[in-house]
Amino acid sequence: MNNFLGLYNYWIVIILMMTGFYIVIAKGNLLKKVVGLNIFQTSVIIMYVSMAKVKDGAAPILTEGVEKFSNPLPHVLMLTAIVVGVATTALALALIVRIYEEYGSVEEDEIHEQDGSF
């Protein structure tokens, strides 16, 4: 493992993260932006969980005959992060619904047009 290939987990994470980032900044549709943010979030979760992996380790549940475990701490942090993530996503979706009711659109450009900004 003494070459750069040992870093491939981070590269997958970065590709996913940049995909989410691209959706957030390039797309005008608010719902699509939320999906992009969620992809971004998943990439962060994958990063933590992949860091927790130990070679030949088992899932961190005490069982007889198993001595090597993966690191439980990142699992805990990410587990709660997912649930908090869905709660905040729901909040964002609720905001989108309200915006649609006020402006009749979920496109960024049209909303700016109605506000007279830009």
Binding site: T42, A52, V54, H75, V83
Partner: peptide, 13 residues
């Protein structure tokens, strides 16, 4: 990646 708890949460959520 051995993170069974996280997987369960992600699948449900």
């Amino acid at each position: 990646l051995d993170a069974v708890d996280v997987a369960l949460t992600e699948a449900a959520v």
